[in-house]
Design a protein around this nucleic acid. Structure first.
Lengths: 396, 396
DNA sequence: GAGACTTTCTCCTCTCCGAGGACAAAGGGC
DNA sequence: GCCCTTTGTCCTCGGAGAGGAGAAAGTCTC
């Protein structure tokens, strides 16, 4: 099948495409209400979009008391591919032009295997999705990687947990492989975008998305747009110090947040507790599985294990300490907590909230919701699809 | 004298005014090089600006190899008033349209006396400047206050160190009093803007301006624009915790940065050292003056007093701790240190630098200059003038 | 010092965009 | 079936702005 080649010719067309993406099929009259354009101009631009094939007619709308208007919608054959490469897994999803997830596959994987091996797996998953019939091809792809990215070029820079990726031309390579436009960003940024598009952050302009997974990172949204910093490493909060002269961290410093919390240290602490015999529950799980992870701690906590609960609470408190600082500094509308360990759920959230509300100034916390993400695993891939659609639905 | 009433009629005129503000007098031909407009359009817009009186002819430019071009410049009679209200002083300056400071007065003052008393003093200083002949009237005024501001309305909100100002309609009142447009912002934000306009931050888009004065605050510039947060309290970093369960702070928490450093605690620590007898130098100064302040510590340090040096170093280290976290989070192009205690100078700077470079990740610090502000006392008033000029030089 | 070349400035024309009105088409309600 | 409302199409008109022609005002070379 021939894929999308057209792009909006001007800012008006771009706006129309985004309206149709975000609000679904719409009548021409409704579009007129949402956009500040004369009817004549609007008709011209919609007709041009119909010609390009990006938009198709979609029957008649219900009457609003007079002549029925013609519906239009984004081409139903458009497909975006969202790829979320985590430290230990890869997620691939296919969406339509309205960014609804039509198919989603996950697979465990170690990012340290390097870009070639990881791409092979991601492309295999994409192929599987295509074979399942949800897509015949892709009009664009977004991909998130667990490290800093030089955004304009789509190239990872100095990623600590994925050394083999440094400077690898992700955008270029994937674009070649898939034969469609590709955009690359940090995975946490994309999760933030995902929650902004379809999750809890739909209505706010300035918010933080804190991901607690293998590592801890933060997506920063300013004025509705992701802020990436000078070198693309903004939001790298895992190595903020929470304990002067504290535990040594893999980064070479002492007392970093990640040395105390996050998937890796949580697993380490849980195993230590199991071996020390303070938690029979965790010990049993360790004996059964040979190793422990965040899900084990979550399960143990759910069954009331005090050691597991304590691990989550102190971790949440430490995370809350850092977030409190960020809230004072950034004064956001909203803080979203997401990532793999949200299985720890409300125990974690409660600890974070307590700490933030206690430690930040009232003016910044008065109307500050701190909530869990709504999209879970889908946040990253949704954000990825949104990233590429934003790119494609902008003037050429 | 009649004051400026005209405003640019469109975005082109606004851009031309800003070009003339930032680059000084310019020939029409040069303006053509700097702006993307056809010669005909440019001529029309410049002529219209000449008609409004915002811009005046300014003789002939030097030849660039052919016919000499006509110079234009912003009306030389335009005057902006910049007011910087600190915790313990008020600064007032007059600038021309190019934001050059033509006169500058400072006066000690306690902001807790309340808005009415403070305005009286500020207006008296403005009157003095007018009497000295640098201005006949003001075309606009910018004012900075030491607390959070609801920016669109120009009203302080819940300012901790100036309770009497909460909700006081600063913009409205001052505009009435002066008979010209007024814009209000947090004083630290304005110092950041000042350094951006005429100081060290001229060439960067994303930077932090850390002010260490009576309190400690931070101006955040994203994409060339001040970021103020949802409630206008962004950058309030004085109450970020640096020491879990540390010293009690005036805000009710423990271990805040301001409990350890900043003008107030520096004075307290210095007096304690003087009384304890560990520093003869400080003791002598205390005996002479009855109390100590940051300048005393600076002087003692300059003459080699080890206790004073140590106070500055540990304060710098603590500040560096916080800045290190912000740098990891925000990944700026540049960090500027300014405010009253820059008299502490390079001892302070060195301590901050050491801590930040040690504690933040290499990718964020590799090309990160940390420097002292260039403008000193003039940063705030320059930023204030820039604020109002940005407002006036924008399409109506 | 005269002529040739450059740069600047002023008109003028021509095109394009988009607003908005007139009118036709299509539907609802009584 | 009649009248009102909404939607869609067509047309005209005004304004914005690009770009060319040519005059005006310099510099530079010989």
């Amino acid at each position: 099948m021939r894929r999308m080649t057209a792009r909006p010719a001007n800012a008006h067309q771009a706006r129309l495409l985004r309206l149709l993406r975000d609000h679904g099929p719409n009548s021409r009259a409704q579009l007129g209400d949402r956009i500040d354009l004369s009817r004549s101009k609007l008709a011209v631009e919609v007709d041009r979009l119909l010609e390009t094939g990006l938009v198709v007619a979609d029957g008649l709308a219900a009457s609003r008391g007079g002549r029925r208007s013609h519906n239009v919608r984004l081409a139903p054959s458009l497909r975006f591919l969202g790829i979320d490469i985590g430290a230990t897994s890869v997620d691939v999803a296919v969406t339509n032009a309205e960014l609804e997830v039509l198919g989603h596959l996950t697979q465990p994987m170690d990012v340290r295997e390097g870009p070639v091996a990881v791409f092979e797996q991601a492309l295999a998953l994409a192929g599987k999705l295509r074979a399942s019939g949800v897509a015949e091809g892709f009009d664009g792809a977004g991909i998130g990687v667990p490290g800093p990215v030089r955004f304009p070029e789509g190239v990872p820079v100095a990623p600590p947990i994925m050394p083999g990726w440094d400077g690898f031309p992700v955008r270029e390579a994937l674009s070649q492989e898939l034969g469609c436009p590709v955009m690359v960003d940090n995975d946490v940024n994309l999760m933030a975008v995902g929650e902004q598009h379809a999750g809890v952050a739909r209505t706010v302009r300035d918010f933080l998305f804190v991901k607690i997974g293998t590592g801890i990172g933060c997506g920063i949204v300013v004025n509705g747009e992701v802020y990436r910093g000078t070198t693309g490493s903004a939001g790298d909060i895992g190595h903020i110090q929470v304990e002067p002269d504290g535990r040594p961290c893999a980064c070479g410093n002492h007392g970093c947040l990640e040395a105390y919390f996050g998937g890796a240290s949580l697993a380490r602490d849980a195993e230590a507790a199991a071996r020390a015999g303070t938690s029979p529950e965790l010990a049993a799980r360790l004996a059964a599985a040979g190793s422990l992870g965040a899900p084990d701690v979550a399960a143990a906590a759910a069954s009331g294990d005090p050691v597991a609960l304590d691990l989550i609470r102190t971790g949440g408190t430490r995370t809350g300490q850092v977030i409190a600082g960020l809230v004072s500094f950034f004064n956001p509308d909203l803080v979203v907590i997401g990532g793999g360990v949200t299985g720890l759920g409300h125990t974690l959230l409660a600890a974070v909230r307590t700490q933030v509300y206690r430690q930040s100034l009232p003016l910044a916390t008065n109307n500050l919701p701190i909530v869990l993400g709504e999209l879970g695993q889908a946040a990253g891939v949704t954000g990825a699809a949104r990233l590429i659609s934003d790119h494609l639905f902008s003037p050429a």
